[in-house]
Amino acid sequence: MASKFINITLKIWRQKNSQAKGSMETYKLDHVSTDSSFLEMLDQLNEQLINERKEPIAFDHDCREGICGMCSLYINGRAHGPDTGITTCQLHMRMFKDGDTIYVEPWRSAAFPVIKDLVVDRSAFDRIQQAGGFVSVNTSGRTIDANSIPVPKTDADKAFEAAACIGCGACVATCKNGSAMLFVGAKVSQYALLPQGKVEAKNRVLNMVRQMDEEGFGNCTNTGACEIECPKGISLENIARMNREFLTAALSNED
């Protein structure tokens, strides 16, 4: 792996806090290794800013291996940058060329207000989960034996594929409508596909969708952008399944 070094220009959204007005600022960064990850490049920029006694750029990140869902960033007009199937922390600088100008912005959504610079508040996702994203079973450990209800492998696999969602919010960020239906659809699907989740399926989908609407997310118009940009490749099938679940639940709701 031959290391190369490139010089880049960055245009980055800076915003002091949630109340302040923000703007795009320009930074030059030299000698960036193409083996660096995108976030390591930002570390390097921050080190440079600190040495210049300027305020470093705040951005969310944690595991840096593409699973915690904490990193975000809208890079050159795309959620998690130009590569697909990865999060920003897995994006590497070899995707860019010497002399490139790179735009870096926070997720833009009414439901994800900016906290500072590139950091946004995604607690709306937590609240949707709290509205019904669970199976109501107490944690006694005295449930029935794990193998007493066989689950068809295809259902289990599909439930897993839906459950692979990392809750990063790229779907919302990339959707022209700021819709969270891929996120909610994935959660609804995971439980709808498993016998353990079926009992509460109707209330779950109604409650989660209600909460989703209250949070101010937009509606799905099936552009399919979320599926393309989702780092975990969550399928649109999950949105369809949620629609199905929602329609049947809404039509048969007795409350």
């Binding site: 795309r78 833009r108 009414a110 409508n177 700021g178 937009g218 552009t223």
Partner: peptide, 24 residues
């Protein structure tokens, strides 16, 4: 409603990378 869901637009956006033009 969908417009309201994104009050601040992106300074740089490349939606062509992930969706068909008619759909948008």
């Amino acid at each position: 409603k969908n417009k309201k869901a994104r009050p601040v637009p992106y300074a740089y956006n490349n939606p062509g990378a992930n969706s068909s033009t008619p759909s948008r």
